[in-house]
Write a protein that binds this DNA or RNA. Sequence first.
RNA 1: AGCGGGAUGGGAUAGCCAGGAGAUUCCGGCGGGCUCAUAACCCGCAGACCGGUAGUUCAAAUCUACCUCCCGCUACCA
Length: 725
Amino acid sequence: MSHDDFPTDNPAVVTCGLPYANGDLHIGHLRTYISGDAYARAMEKLGQQTAFVSGSDMHGTPVAVNAEKEGVSPEAFAMRHHEKYAETFPKFNVEFDNYGHTHDETNTELTQEFVRSWVEEDHVFEKEIQVAWDPEADTPLPDRFVEGTCPYCGAKARGDECDEGCQRHLEPGEIEDPVSTITGNPAEYRAREHKFLRLSDFQEYLKGFIDRLEGTSNARNQPREWIEGELQDLCITRDMDWGIDYPSESDEDGDGTSEEDLVLYVWVDAPIEYVASSKQYTERVGADTFDWEQVWKAGAPEPGASDEADNEAWTQSDTGEIVHIIGRDIIQHHTVFWPSMLRGAGYNEPRAVMASGFVNLDGDAFSTSRNRAVWADDYLDEGFDPDLIRYYLTTTGGFQQDVDFSWEKFRERVNGELVGTLGNFAYRSLLFAARNYEGTPDADTSEEVSERIREAITDFEDAVNDYSLKRAGDAAVALAGFGNEYIQRNEPWNLTDDDPEKAEQVIYDCVQLAKAVAVLSAPILPGKAQTLWTQLGEEGSVHDVPLSGALEAPPADFGEPDELFEKIEDDRVEELNEKLEASVQAAADAAEEDADESEDETVTDESDTESDIDIEPINDDRISFDEFQDLDLRIGEIEVAEPIEGADDLARVEVDIGVETRQIVAGIKQLHDLDSLPGKKVVIVANLEKAELFGVESNGMLLAAGEEADILTTHGDSGPGTKVR
RNA sequence: AGCGGGAUGGGAUAGCCAGGAGAUUCCGGCGGGCUCAUAACCCGCAGACCGGUAGUUCAAAUCUACCUCCCGCUACCA
């Protein structure tokens, strides 16, 4: 890659985060795809050779789980969603140069090549970990095949993620009280050999990488804490059938068991689809047109090369420009895991990561479970043009900011900017020109207008180089705004009789401006820009025209145009809001029924388990009396107990232990009424090494039992400081 | 608690990195003009002491320090 302004002489790849083949798309999802498409088109407008690629993410446990629920094969399940996505994107004018999926041959081969490279370079090691297992079905339970209690916040959680509680990513083996989602039975843990990618090998490299990275500031800053701290190694295999097989090494290590049964973790093969999809594009159009290897491989340091953080080597290589466009929920995957994966296999590194904010609905987060969402299909069914939502999502606020969507705001933007400013200017100009001159009058562009168009072009180029789609879109609309002002100021309708030459001049300028608006708005409004282009009597596609086309003479002949955009009426908004409310209500009613049912289930569950509560087996390893003596247990009295802000469970307590008052951090915040604790006697481990949790020093441990953190106390009159033995 | 991002007229936004006249743009409010155009467009007015306090400077929304409040992200059962 280079760090020169776009366009560079290198080919570029723009990618979108892979949609997961497991559900429908709503307009929140669409934000990154629309932005990716608009950005790729904008790069091409600058003259940058660009391939825009992505693909569906087919693997992983959610697909396997949901396929099983439906009684279909994971492949059929994922493929159905893949086809739906591939069909939906073009309806929003999102046109990938290649849209593949992770289960195809190209990605499978490439992924296994990556893994072999890591193994060759000794970045992979084996470790035995505890894996949840369904004893009845005799099958391992990776990720979402198991549900249980989050070890961090105590909420109900899935095996790979605490989805309802603290949102934390869970590594295999971490979840507590695991239950199989297949049979509903309690799961047990079994020891299994798994493969890990040693991320710590790339720590120094990543420090250099993150400083070179362009794009949005959140993508650069958020992973700093990981990269500059201690990197945990990434478990790259799972016990399941659905996925890409871990490449067998002809079983040299002779343990015979594991590798055959292991597939790669979905986050291994998913980003590699970026490469695979680029490769498929090359295979289709030929390396002369687009060379995926030049983008992804050429010029990158060899794997194992020692120039870890050598900026020179990276920034001066003439390879390709890789730009990833993602949601901000997967920043770490693209700024920690992914560059490590690339580096480990000797590939080029991304030049930029653009991490978008989320889309909210009337101020609150989208909720698919509550059906509080505007679905892609709903939007289309309402008959709205895709360019409207493209405009809204790309030009409302900065890319990394969250965007709030409401039908009311949507109406305001569409009516004010697209209908009032852009559409109206184009329409009035072309209509006037067609009626009076049957096209473009005989004149030349005035210096004022061509200067203004050049300014818009510069704004557009700067915007692309600053990774700002909003400013790129604004450049086009602002130019139309100028056009409105220009035509109003010159009043050509008053000139046709008195000063026909001047009138021709003004209208020529307006047609030129309309043409420039078509060129500049094409990335954001691909369909409407093309319509305008055709209205201008232009041949071919506006998307093949470079920015300089904005200054070229418009065709001499064209007829009366149609209106580009339609106003959205107030009562339409009311109607849409009512529909949205109704669907939320319907989902809420359905959920209530579900909740009633599941409540019943919960009750029976509890009565079932009451008799045989899960009790951890007694540890067989006996310790000596001396070892026990090492523990300094004391009675203490709680003086202060207050929550630690930002922590779900932690509380800061001060405990009087006779000789002194200790500050201890304890995970009891949600389980106790903290106000009632002062005065209570407790048992603490007084000689535990100090630790810092959430920045608060913890000097000892407060003993408590079980999930409910039942605090140990005394029943006699032993005072603070009394030793427990 | 740490780290990151914010706090700018009624609402929403830009400017801040590379300090410079009475601070941008859009929506909304008020008034006017015009009529080629989708009753739209154009012009004008009102409205912000640029979160607070101190400092650097001839000059600060912009730099520095401290503080307040919001949002996000973290090695959360010691």
